[in-house]
Design a protein around this nucleic acid. Structure first.
Lengths: 342, 342
DNA sequence: TTGTATGCGTTATCAT
DNA sequence: ATGATAACGCATACAA
């Protein structure tokens, strides 16, 4: 049991050629029924497994998808589960590398996966990335790729994302309707298209309701709880402080929440708060956190599906883009009406 | 740029043999300096990259580690980050497959990774697993493996875990010292060694303090918030209900917390609660949740380190076991003394 | 129906 | 210092 049995072993034992064994095993062409039976039996007995490495070399593909993600928090994990499920179904294996929001680490990971000769990539960029040469290089090498969620701007590739403008719009409109007058946005790193799209939705809602736009209320911000905490602290000491905040990720909203509590401000009466992603923790904090939910599992699944479709067809999918819809979940942190009316 | 340049291309262009090119590239043996220079230059120009697939076939190894985990929650993600970091450093790539606590899925994943010909495995078993034939099969195929965190019992392999008995002991002792008299434990699936070890720690603390053991207070329980929620509901309607609960994972503690709140019981005065893992959400819930923290990143790193050591040496490490120490973090959900004294 | 020869990209062994 | 050849495990075009 030390060494894996190979086709050669079977051929030698049965006194036939390796090609015949190969054909018998895969039941291709015509193989005499007796030889085939003999081969099958011996294969079974030796517990023969085709050597994938050899097949990889031969076919020049590995049936492996490289997945590049910025972190492993709740939403991203959920997306990865979606990718994983779809990939498994289609006979692909997945190699996940997370960059921890670091540009340098993302480059290393890209190279790693490239060297491992994955057949292609499914990519969500890091918050730090604004140069995308490493992704372009993959395309020069003709590696198929699907971009998802955090779409790297300037790339030509099929894309799967949610409607980020809608997300920003929904959250902001909700806050306006709750009677908040001065709404700030913690809108993520400027390098991300997603940040700007959510901000656009925020702006759209403000304009639509005839509210004026204050640049001091637009805070670019790392995807990270501490950063959001400090940013919020600064917001709260301003002469004319915001009376509501939309943070484009729950972990940022949690950071904001800590700063707000520290200032002894009451949510939702003194200040409203909406996050995004519907992290499990949002249900548990006090007050419970309103949030914009996205179909994360679905999004991952769709990305993988698109990837597989791309591998199996030769049509140009470069310009395809699938956009899923976010959904507002209203909880205590932003429902001023109810609280003020009591 | 369509096709990757190979050694053959270089050899043909320079009118030398592939062996010379190979040697020049790797600077082995004696190669005339001029030929070497020429080779290097052309390689650079053609952007030559050695084909890993070919090397894999030749060396019969892939420099890839298969990582099998039960889920992707906070602690596990952190452990994976540790594995990842160490692996990267040692030139390994990591393939992560999560079983979602499903035995069937775990088997599929094991097979998937086996087929992808990973060099070995780093494994934390699913909560559902009690038959371990699929792991034993890996050993029959001489695949090196390291077990970590949720150690599959009955396996002979190097292990990295925390002191689970200590964890149970710390939590329970703390609750006793806070004056709780009837302490229940949500101790995870019976199939996990880790569950039983934590339970042993719980028992040890009870005995040490002369408290009697009530079998009704020992609840086996899936690693899952909902399950813990229902289990706690049942605990709370008992004639003599517990006045404190230790849940061996934070997500179970959160489920318990929901049930407790629903019953309008006050934490920590009516009932104390301690979780485990130091999930970020534990800081945010109200009351904040006491918890037993484990060095998750370190644990992952150590597991990977052990794996790599095993690959690089030929000594038998089967019986090695590294045990890291957990740490109690006291928060509001269990600090009765302070609350009752006010 | 089966066998022979060749190739996938690389390295190692043995010559020269 | 360099080249020819075989080998890793498999599949396939071509022959028979």
């Amino acid at each position: 049991m030390e060494r894996q049995a190979t086709i050669k072993d079977i051929a030698r034992t049965l006194n036939i050629s390796t090609s015949t064994v190969s054909r018998a095993l895969r039941n291709t062409h015509d193989v005499k029924i007796e030889t085939r039976k003999a081969v099958m039996e011996l294969a079974e007995q030796l517990n023969y497994q085709p050597n994938q490495l050899a097949l990889h070399l031969l076919k020049k593909q590995t049936h492996t998808i490289g997945v590049i993600i910025p972190n492993l928090d709740y939403v991203v994990s959920t997306m990865v589960k979606g990718i994983d499920e779809m990939a498994l179904e289609a006979g692909y294996t997945v190699m996940v590398c997370q960059s921890n929001e670091s540009y340098g680490r993302e480059i290393v990971n890209t190279k790693r996966l490239m060297d491992s000769l994955v057949d292609g990539f499914i990519i969500s960029q890091s918050g730090e990335t604004n140069i995308i040469d490493h992704f372009k290089k993959l395309q020069e090498k003709k590696k198929p790729m699907v971009l998802f969620d955090r779409i790297a701007s300037g790339m030509k590739a099929p894309k799967v994302r949610i409607d980020n403008e809608e997300a920003g719009y929904l959250a902001t409109k909700h806050l306006i309707e709750q009677g908040y007058k001065k709404i700030a946005i913690l809108c993520g790193p400027e390098s991300l298209e997603l940040s700007n799209n959510r901000k656009d939705g925020y702006l759209k809602a403000l304009k639509e309701h005839g509210m004026k736009i204050d640049k001091n209320m637009i805070i670019y911000c790392d995807f990270n709880q501490d950063y959001a905490y400090f940013a919020t602290k600064e917001l709260l000491v301003m002469r004319s402080r915001p009376d509501a905040i939309f943070a484009i990720a729950d972990k940022m909203a949690i950071g904001a929440m800590l700063a707000i509590k520290e200032k002894k401000l009451n949510m939702p009466n003194d200040i409203g708060l909406v996050g995004m992603n519907n992290d499990p923790s949002t249900r548990l904090v006090t007050p419970s956190l309103s949030t914009v939910e996205m179909p994360a599992f679905e999004l991952g699944k769709t990305a993988a599906k698109m990837f597989i479709e791309m591998m199996n067809s030769d049509k140009d999918m470069t310009n395809e883009e699938i956009v899923l819809r976010p959904k507002l979940i209203i909880r205590e942190s932003s429902t001023k009406m109810i609280n003020t009316s009591k």
